[in-house]
Design a protein around this nucleic acid. Structure first.
Lengths: 329, 329
DNA sequence: ATGAAAGCGCTAACAC
DNA sequence: GTGTTAGCGCTTTCAT
């Protein structure tokens, strides 16, 4: 089989004995064409194993059918499920996915952003956790954000995090816990994660229970996370309930607690957050707040499509959460 | 801040009072330029918030700096770690990643392939499990395959799967197991997974032990997988050791076994395969054969780079595996 | 040290 | 029905 490199529309035209325009028309099913011409052109295309050059097309049409995805990492149950679904939904609309995993490094995120823009992407879906990347404000590009407020004009697709936090905390209280600790991000970044914490604080206050929060950075090493969790148990041996802001931390907390001799759920009850398929598979016993991850991806792509189509009235969307009852709380 | 859309090199040239050529030279640090001109141009670029159009550049240079990734899914511990590392390594070399998760659907894989090619990618890294996609044979494009034989001229990066299968089976035998069952893919597809099975069979024969293999399709639903595993226990209640061809199945087997009353490792010993970071985190007790996943990604990108640079002598590479001793075997 | 003009591969007015 | 021609935005000879 011959290579298709360097075979261009002009070559097809020559071989078929027609003009470039005609070939282009056949390719794009446009205008009137005699069947004879169509056949001739197709024959030439097959003979030469011709494949149209998208780059040239894109240059002309100013549309690349490329959508950028900027997330901290793929190697995480939540993000891998989200990105998988995003990719799959984008595919249905004819878009290809250009990856940009920032590892939550602001320099890298900025760099990715620049590069994606240079690639003339048609749209962007972001879910990175970086603080204060002002770049996004100045972009005249359809953007949808997931679980993070970026700028006023950028629609956000997010779970009902406050409700989630409420459900989680209430579950622990209903279980009879008196010393409930919450783990969350280290700072008030622009993430909607903060609402989980707000709900925890509100519910605790309403029940006259003491509020204790530990900060676990999403990006720190496994060792650092575990060390903070250890500290938590040393400083608060009385803890009898923990609401973790994500399932990965809930898992680490469970493992650490077991090592320290806590029985779950007898001595210590745990509620996580996310409810990804992967964690459900590996840790079905975990009681957790399940986000509609697949739906988030679906909605995000829908909204992006609307923005790309020119709709400037695209609104943010909040999606439901539900408590999945396992055996840890 | 003004939008950068539509701002082109020509606009910069006009504002700076120079020619397009000069601006291009400043941009690419080429040729002789007076400092004064350089400054003027930079000023104009900043003022207009100009960003060069990669598409136009690419059209001229016939290089897109895009690498396609074709894998079955990202929502899997092994693949998400692999793709994360691939993306990160490609990034270091200045390549962007174009995603193509085929869900192991041949139509979809073929379609992705076409589309990626149309996007004029510079190279391709594949790890999909589809049988007999002949498309790859005809491509005049640098390709590296991971854990799968595609065509004779395409280099493969793979683990030492035979050794892995040997280590796993031997461990179970050393543990005193007499009825060891192996789970693997349903057919002799072009996957290197088959070598794990071959090793199992060889070691079992050498020890005069009966060979029993169950087939679990990577792509079937969770329910179907679990149902096959149930069947395994019904048909072989005497089983005292299982070598699963991947950790995800090992996990399902463990969960099913526990539900059926087996104590692990007392009644039943289990060895998995893969050893991804995610499974290590969620299931640290699992004894498994660890592949050098990150290294696979590193090597694959290195080989691809060589192929892109024009080296046609690129050889396949086999990477080491090691047994990670948990408490399940 | 800088500019004019051709060309990368394709599409789309505008002819005929 | 089909062809001619002028771009899309950038790089790069070849002049000067």
């Amino acid at each position: 089989m011959l290579s298709d490199k360097n075979v261009k529309l002009e070559d097809v035209a020559k071989l078929a004995g027609v003009s470039k325009t005609t070939v282009s028309r056949v390719l794009n099913h446009r205008g009137y064409l005699s069947q004879k011409t169509i056949d001739k052109v197709h024959e030439a295309i097959d003979n030469l194993n011709y494949r149209p050059n998208q780059i040239a097309r894109q240059l002309h049409e100013r549309k690349t059918n490329l959508v950028g995805l900027v997330f901290p990492t793929m190697n995480d149950p939540f993000f891998s499920q989200l990105e998988t679904k995003l990719d799959s939904q984008l595919y249905k609309l004819g878009y290809k996915t250009l990856l940009g995993n920032s590892q939550n490094d602001p320099d890298r995120e900025q760099n990715y952003l620049q590069q994606l823009l240079n690639h003339q992407i048609d749209g962007l879906i972001v879910g990175s956790h970086n603080k204060g990347l002002t770049e996004y404000n100045n972009l005249n590009l359809p953007i949808i954000s997931i679980e993070r407020h970026i700028a006023d004009h950028i629609p956000v697709v997010a779970s009902d995090n406050y409700l989630g936090g409420k459900l989680a905390t209430q579950q622990l209280i209903d279980d009879g816990c008196k010393h409930i600790i919450h783990t969350n991000y280290p700072e008030l970044i622009a993430s909607t994660n903060q609402l989980r914490q707000n709900a925890y604080v509100d519910v605790m206050h309403k029940n006259n229970l003491p509020v204790t929060i530990y900060h676990i950075d999403f990006d720190s090493s496994l060792e650092d996370k575990i060390s903070i969790i250890h500290q938590l148990f040393i400083e608060h041996p009385e803890v009898d309930g923990i609401f973790a802001d994500n399932d990965t931390n809930a898992n680490l907390i469970m493992q650490t607690a077991k090592k320290l001799g806590y029985k779950i759920p007898e001595d210590l009850k745990i509620v996580g957050f996310d409810g990804s398929k992967m964690v459900q598979m590996f840790l079905p016993e975990l009681t957790t707040i399940q986000q509609s991850i697949d739906q988030m991806a679906e909605v995000a792509v829908e909204l992006l499509e609307q923005r790309i189509e020119g709709n400037t009235e695209v609104k943010s969307v909040t999606l439901p959460v539900k408590l999945i009852k396992g055996s840890t709380a």
